[in-house]
C-alpha cells in the first residue's frame, strides 16, 4: 500500500479510536493515537499475515503481540480495518458480551488476538516463546511486539530482554512506544529509566531509534531496516519516539489523555481534525 493510502488509513483509525472510547466513556486514547502510524504501517504494509483465515498458530505468518494491552482501541481498529473481523463490531467495544474487551483477550475468540494482555510486562516473554516455536518449526517468518516505555518499569521485560540476546532470538523485532509519559506523569518524574538505547544495547540488542515515530516514511524505513537486521544473532529493538495523542491537538503534549475519553464537544473537534476516509463503522 502506498504511503498516501496508509495516511488515509491512519486518519480513519484515529476516528475509530476516539469514537470507540467516547461511546463508552472509557478506554485509552492517548497511547492508541501515538502508535497508530506504527500499527497501520505494520499491518497494511510490512506484516506477512492472513487476516481472512485467522489461525492461532500462525505457521508461515509474521506474528504481532501487543504487550501494552490498554491501547486496545488502535489494535482493534487496525485488526478490523485489515480484515480480521467486521468493522461494525468496533461499536461493541467495552460493552457487555463483546469480543472487544477492555484489554485484548483470546477468551472471546476475537480473530487476530493470540494472547491476553493488560497486566503489563508479559508480552515480550510470550513473543520469545512464539519466536522459539518458529525456529523449531523451521518457519522463517518474524515476530513483532509493541511495548509502552512506562511498561519497561516491569522487571519481567528485562528477564525477557536478557534471554532474547543470550539465546540469540534474532527473529524478534520489539518496538517501544517512547512517548515519555505514563499515568502519573512523565516517565522521568515517575521513575526515570535513563537511556533506553544504552539499556537495550547493554542487554545485547541491536537498537534502532526512530526520531519521529509518527512519521510513516520514517517508520517504513525503520521496519525495513529492522527486517534486514534479523537473522544475525541479535534481537532488534525499535525505539519509536512518539507523541501521545498524536493527530488530535488537544490530546498532544500531555499525559492526561492516557485513559480519559473525550466528551461530546471534544469528539466533534477530534473528528474535525481527521477526515473520514474509509467510512465510519
Amino acid at each position: 500500500m502506498s504511503q498516501q493510502n496508509l495516511q488515509a488509513v491512519v486518519s480513519q483509525v484515529r476516528r475509530d479510536i476516539v469514537r470507540m472510547v467516547h461511546a463508552v466513556n472509557s478506554g485509552h486514547p492517548g497511547g492508541s493515537l501515538g502508535c497508530t502510524e506504527y500499527l497501520v504501517s505494520l499491518y497494511f504494509k510490512h506484516l506477512n499475515h492472513n487476516s481472512q483465515e485467522f489461525s492461532m498458530n500462525g505457521i508461515g505468518e509474521d506474528l504481532f503481540f501487543l504487550s501494552n494491552g490498554h491501547i486496545s482501541p488502535v489494535f482493534y481498529s487496525v485488526l478490523a480495518r485489515s480484515g480480521y473481523f467486521p468493522v461494525s463490531e468496533l461499536a461493541t467495544f467495552r460493552k457487555l458480551n463483546t469480543r472487544l474487551q477492555g484489554h485484548p483477550t483470546t477468551h472471546e475468540g476475537l480473530e487476530g488476538i493470540r494472547i491476553a494482555s493488560g497486566s503489563l510486562g508479559q508480552g515480550m516473554s510470550v513473543a520469545i516463546g512464539a519466536a522459539e516455536a518458529k525456529k523449531l518449526n523451521n518457519d522463517s517468518s518474524l515476530v513483532f511486539t509493541l511495548h509502552g516505555d512506562g511498561e519497561l518499569q516491569e522487571g519481567q521485560v528485562w528477564e525477557a530482554a536478557m534471554y532474547a540476546s543470550a539465546k540469540k532470538i534474532d527473529n524478534l523485532i520489539s518496538a517501544i512506544d517512547v512517548n515519555e509519559k505514563q499515568i502519573d506523569g512523565t516517565t522521568d518524574d515517575v521513575l526515570a529509566m535513563g537511556s533506553l538505547r544504552a539499556k537495550f544495547e547493554a542487554f545485547g540488542w541491536d537498537v534502532l531509534d526512530v526520531e519521529n515515530g509518527n512519521d510513516l516514511d520514517a517508520i517504513d524505513q525503520a521496519i525495513t531496516l529492522a527486517k534486514e537486521k534479523t537473522g544475525k544473532g541479535k534481537p532488534i529493538c525499535l525505539l519509536l519516539h512518539t507523541e501521545m495523542g498524536n493527530g488530535i491537538d488537544f490530546m498532544m503534549g500531555t499525559h492526561k489523555w492516557h485513559g480519559v475519553a473525550p466528551n461530546d464537544a471534544q469528539l466533534v473537534s477530534a473528528l474535525a481534525q481527521n477526515e473520514e476516509t474509509l467510512g465510519d463503522y
Binding site: 492461532m56 498458530n57 500462525g58 505457521i59 506474528l63 503481540f65 493470540r114 494472547i115 508479559q122 508480552g123 515480550m124 516473554s125 510470550v126 513473543a127 520469545i128 516463546g129 512464539a130 519466536a131 522459539e132 516455536a133 518458529k134 523449531l136 518449526n137 518457519d139 522487571g155 519481567q156 528477564e159 525477557a160 536478557m162 534471554y163 543470550a166 539465546k167
Partner: peptide, 28 residues
Amino acid sequence: PDRFFQVGIAEANMMGIAAGLTIGGKIP
C-alpha cells in the same frame, strides 16, 4: 537439546515463553 529451554532464574519469563511456544503448536 533442541527442545529444551534453560531460562535461568527467571520464572516469570519462563511462564511467558511457555505460553508463546503453544502458539506454533508446541506442548510446553
